[in-house]
Design a protein around this nucleic acid. Structure first.
Lengths: 194, 194
DNA sequence: GAGGGCGTACCGTCTGGTCGGTTTGCGCGA
DNA sequence: TCGCGCAAACCGACCAGACGGTACGCCCTC
């Protein structure tokens, strides 16, 4: 109970500071002060500052991947599966907005082995989504006159950009935004009129 | 000639290093070594490391804004103007891929006054584009059932994401990608079928 | 000979990380 | 119930070095 408490508080403080100040400009000292622990305690649970950053990513990647797997496993027509995936990824990205901010801003600061790991897991997600699009193309519901890689990029761009403009205090709820972005995406890749 | 040479070489070296290593992890020493000048020379032309980062942004923002103004000034139906803007911004973003990488990754590391300036100029671009969409909505060619802010975000997301996936060595040329992304965007926001 | 472009040496500060030691929690034999 | 022992949790003073930035003076050009 106490052990998890320390590690969790450090992780939360690190996420907060990384999101507001950036990874490189946040010192380990700041993190431990914000978390109300000492440096010794922190280095007892984490190997390095780098490890803190990876912990943030690890949690988010694992969650998104498990969501994707669930939705795909549920099955259905390609278009409906893509719709469900799209709505879900937008909503969870809004739930994890600070994580997203840190992710895209500071990913390149991970050390080699961890960067490889993160890249690998992103590619997994990426490939699984591309396979869905391919199924839709085979079924004839998604257009095939644009390279699939461009369609995939077009999809991830919205998710990526969320942390740059969306605010929970803004006029739109996450459910609305998820519906709207999903609708925009599907309309652009469908062969038939909506 | 010589003066510009020094400043230019420093700017180029800084851009290159910021794009590959990140702003915070690049030291002034590295920059001046890569540029083949000394720290004294560099600090003669730039006030601070922060100034170097701003110089990168300044150039890109000025260029994109002037392009936008030109295209809007040329006039035409809203849809065609938006199409031209979209194609142009994708193409110039590809021309300035390293700048884009640095921009979105390290913008938050600018000091207060310069961050304000950059934010202001981005908003200018943003507002001008939103006005175009509004015109299209008034003309009835762009859908109005989705908040304009969401449409604008949907547009900028593609531009933003380019530096994360596009490679000049990849299979698609910048012209093709510009056409494809523009097509996807327009199709999603049009009221009528293509 | 004056002044601006530039080189050199240096400064104070802060960094991520370490390490020897102390405290805490807990199973267990009596 | 107590006390023992021991591992895990935790502390915080302490590195070595790198950082951004500056002071000052040389030299070349006009």
């Amino acid at each position: 109970m106490k052990t998890t408490n320390v590690a969790d508080r450090v992780t939360a403080a690190a996420l907060d500071l990384f999101a507001t100040q950036g990874y490189a400009t946040t010192s380990v000292q700041q993190i431990v002060e914000a978390a109300g622990v000492t440096k010794g305690a922190m280095y007892h649970y984490f190997q390095s500052k780098d490890d803190l950053l990876f912990a943030v990513y690890d949690r988010m990647l694992a969650l998104q991947k498990s969501h994707l797997d669930e939705i795909v496993a549920a099955g259905g027509p390609a278009e409906e599966v893509v719709r469900a995936v799209c709505v879900d990824v937008v909503e969870t990205s809004i739930d994890f907005l600070p994580e997203g901010t840190v992710f895209f801003r500071s990913m390149h600061m991970l050390t080699e082995p961890r960067l490889k790991e993160v890249t690998r897991r992103r590619r997994e997600y990426h490939d699984e989504f591309a396979a869905l699009l391919r199924r839709g193309q085979d079924e004839g519901v998604f257009r095939a006159d644009v390279p699939r890689s461009v369609l995939v990029a077009h999809f991830f761009s919205d998710v990526h950009y969320l942390s740059h403009w969306y605010s929970p205090q803004g006029p739109e709820t996450k459910t609305e935004v998820a519906q709207q972005l999903t609708d925009l995406f599907l309309r652009s890749i469908r062969t038939t009129a909506p």
